[in-house]
Design a protein around this nucleic acid. Structure first.
Lengths: 238, 238
DNA sequence: TCCGAATGTTAACGTTGTCAACATAGGGGC
DNA sequence: GCCCCTATGTTGACAACGTTAACATTCGGA
């Protein structure tokens, strides 16, 4: 298949676009990154591609399906990054865990538009895109996996693995959200380096905690509830 | 001012609604909680109130302004909860810190629609609602304040206060997001109790870290960057 | 009592996502 | 080399949406 325009004339406008699907996805990402929002219009997007708006319906079932395709791209890229660091895996459990968390945040910073779309409520709730659900599970599975390796090596504290996993996930996801939403200021000069340093510090605090040696959280127990010393074993279902 | 309908007849449809602004906000919250999304229509909302859609424009400048009003309600409720626990403040720095984090998450679970709207990209980016920006700063200020109290009492580890604050904020905000988005399953039976217990465990892991005693994160340092042992003092600006 | 301000209604406009019907390109089977 | 089937793109149209303008009704204070 020809990538270039396949029409008769050279510079003339060809009837067929070449790869409209790919071009539409790229244009959508540009819009999202510029406006920080998915509220672009199909007509505007199509006009930017020199194409009628209804042409997009040959490649996507509608606007939501187009966004779903963007989200799917994002999940696959994130999984690719998770699996890319075989080096970290060889370097030990701690390195693997840190690499996974770092990959999550760096992905969000590198692909903010994808990240935004991946967590759109409209897509999360829709059952029209089962692939997205499977990909989401794979992502969380990778994070859990890294923690299980830590546990096998007796590197974890006594807390329940599920609680640790949820805490780690929340921290990493929260940091990514704050960065993507621009609630944490990043120097425009060398965003990559600054983000990486910030990220390392956050992951360190996260892993080692922030209380001084010897300080324990007895005071954290609520007054209105019996302090449950023993965490009940929780099912790992779904 | 009469709360009830002020028209002539008793059960007859009154020309004036009574308190349309309040009713509209409530109806909007219902829609958001039902659909988990802000994509309700003004016409539908107005029809549910037995009112013409343009009547809403007497109370809000438009749909975005209505959402901004919802967000403002949310921020004020959250701040109210922050300040409500004077008891925790008296019980010591650790209790205060835990209470603030817990208030954040419990607010999100109790007011999911508000929470959703508070972090809408369209509202975050718009400069038409400066009040929202001020309220946001107050919220983060309360979290930072609790940490500063900890620091004054020498209860923190040696890490930079800004890093600890960001990590805590990310964890709490991430957990709230995951709960509101339904990515963490909650038993329908006693959601309140289960969330509170889960929350306590996460806050504990967060504060104390999850590494076993003696394990340190030397392996976390990246290979492509010089390991900066000393965190450079960072300005506290903005 | 009267009159302006507050509140609500009707009609209309431009834009949006989407569908149906039609037009064109391109490649595989004869 | 021709033909037809399918993939791809276009035109025209529709209902629904947010929003505005012009008009109607009610309330409350001078």
């Amino acid at each position: 298949m020809d990538k270039a325009r396949t029409g008769s004339g050279r510079g003339r406008k060809a009837y067929h676009h070449g790869d409209l699907r790919k071009a539409a996805l790229e244009q959508a990402l540009q819009h999202i990154n510029r406006t920080r929002d998915v509220s672009f219009t199909l007509r505007e997007l199509a006009a930017g591609l020199g194409v009628s708006s209804t042409a997009l319906y040959r490649h996507f079932d509608g606007k939501l399906a187009l966004l779903a395709a963007v989200a799917e791209e994002g999940y696959r890229e994130l999984l690719r990054r998770f699996d890319a660091d075989a080096a970290a895996q060889a370097a030990g459990p701690l390195a693997l865990m840190a690499a996974r968390g770092r990959a999550y945040v760096l992905f969000a910073v590198a692909f903010p538009a994808h990240f935004r779309v991946m967590f759109l409520p409209q897509l999360r709730q829709s059952e029209a895109f089962p692939t997205l659900g499977e990909l989401r599970q794979q992502v969380y599975g990778r994070l859990e996996e890294a923690l299980e390796v830590l546990q096998r090596n007796d590197l974890l504290s006594g807390a329940d693995l599920r609680d640790i996993a949820l805490t780690s996930w929340a921290t990493v996801h929260g940091l990514a959200s704050l960065l993507v939403d621009g609630q944490v200021r990043i120097e425009a000069g060398s965003p990559s380096k600054e983000v990486r340093d910030l990220l390392d510090r956050v992951l360190t605090v996260q892993a080692e905690g922030f209380l001084a040696d010897g300080v324990r959280l007895g005071a954290l127990q609520r007054k209105d509830s019996a302090p449950k010393k023993e965490t009940p074993a929780r099912k790992r279902g779904r």
